[in-house]
Design a protein around this nucleic acid. Structure first.
Lengths: 215, 215
DNA sequence: TAGATTGTTAATCGATTAACAATC
DNA sequence: TAGATTGTTAATCGATTAACAATC
């Protein structure tokens, strides 16, 4: 009956951008960083930054702000980015390859330990240092690796089929880069990444601007 | 003084997933599609789907639902996906290359007509059919192409510098795939795509599940 | 000390959900 | 006709913002 309280999703989504800014400022030698400064950098309200940071458990000092090093640690720990999370990737296409070569993710603790594809030419090869295995044995390979997270970058038509195998192999969290709304058991977490949404917003804003002007 | 009323951003973000589902169902031969069915497919509330679809201007028929073909047209027109939007891409790395090879975007009307990079080995080559030009002449090249939209996929350290050139070249909308909060004039639209946010949510949900279990 | 900043409690805002008459 | 579904108006919910005492 466990009510899923994905506590403050919008706040969690903003934390990575705070972390980026804070690291920049810390690198420049600041010992303390105020919510006001972070907000200014990101065009947000200071109160929103303070509220967001509070969920990570950090406490600041009036007048000075937050201790930079402790703040970085606090955010990273809250996000689970302080520990290595092993993952597999299914679908070594353009996007899949790009993700494996994306240093950002590695620095957030995400380590892809195996990739899967159906293409015989790719199987056995290494992409950005990750070996590509055949999808055929995916179930047993994942089980033997005991990995719990999967990145799904297959064509839409294959998405559900792949997800079914992943669930059977014991995967409990899927980072889904396809357009398909996956049907999985309740206990499996799915985070859907949809870059089309970004393009939708962009175009609607563009048109709104155009209309503004002509009015 | 133009108040930016990015009318119903959450609704706009959901439209692409509706479109995907609707196209699937239409392909199977349905003439009408109800909000209830779409909602069921995406695990949403029917009332939310109806409200969202209403912003595109479509009207349905009680008892039957929405006419499938007209609904697709209505969403695509609202999103501006019915017309070709030319764009340039700056930074032909892993992600940049992947985006140019991403058929989804092309089918949404996005057409990358030129790419830019600093790497002499890439300059002059074609990536997924798009020619790579030197960043040096970016300003004049963009001006001569009269393109208004840019995809920014350079390393974080280069992001602001590239954005400055883009703005000078007449770009009015930037799809920003870097972690940098760009400083641009008010009249320039920036949509920031941050996949780290997705990973943040995923990890926080994972940890929440783990805690649930152990309690 | 004076002033900037935190963190808490309250008010506002916007998005989601509910209720329900209209209707094919 | 009866029932499913739309679209409108109202109620609820959650997130953002405001106000302000505490404090270094």
């Amino acid at each position: 009956m466990t009510k899923k309280k994905i506590s403050a999703a919008p706040s969690v989504r903003r934390l990575p951008s705070y972390l980026h800014v804070i690291k920049q400022i810390e690198k420049e030698g600041s010992e303390y960083i105020s919510g006001t400064v972070i907000a200014g950098e990101l065009n947000l309200e200071p109160i929103q930054v303070r509220k967001d940071l509070a969920i990570t458990g950090i406490t600041g000092k009036p007048k000075k702000g937050y201790p930079a090093k402790a703040l970085i640690t606090s955010i990273e720990r809250f996000l689970g980015w302080d520990e290595v999370q092993e993952a597999v990737l299914v679908g070594v296409g353009n996007l899949g390859s790009a993700l494996m070569g994306y240093p950002e993710l590695r620095s957030h603790g995400l380590k892809v330990v195996a990739a899967f594809d159906v293409n015989p030419e790719k199987i056995g090869s290494f992409v950005h240092g990750v070996q590509v295995y055949p999808v055929d044995n995916m179930d047993s390979t994942i089980k033997s690796l005991a990995v719990k997270l999967a990145l799904l970058t297959v064509p839409n038509a294959e998405a559900q089929k792949s997800a079914d195998i992943l669930v059977r192999a014991g995967i409990t969290a899927v980072w889904n880069f396809t357009k398909v709304k996956l049907k999985v058991p309740d206990e499996v977490i799915v985070e859907k990444e949809d870059i089309s949404s970004g393009y939708a917003i962009l175009r609607v804003m563009q048109q709104a601007r155009k209309n503004e002007k002509s009015e």
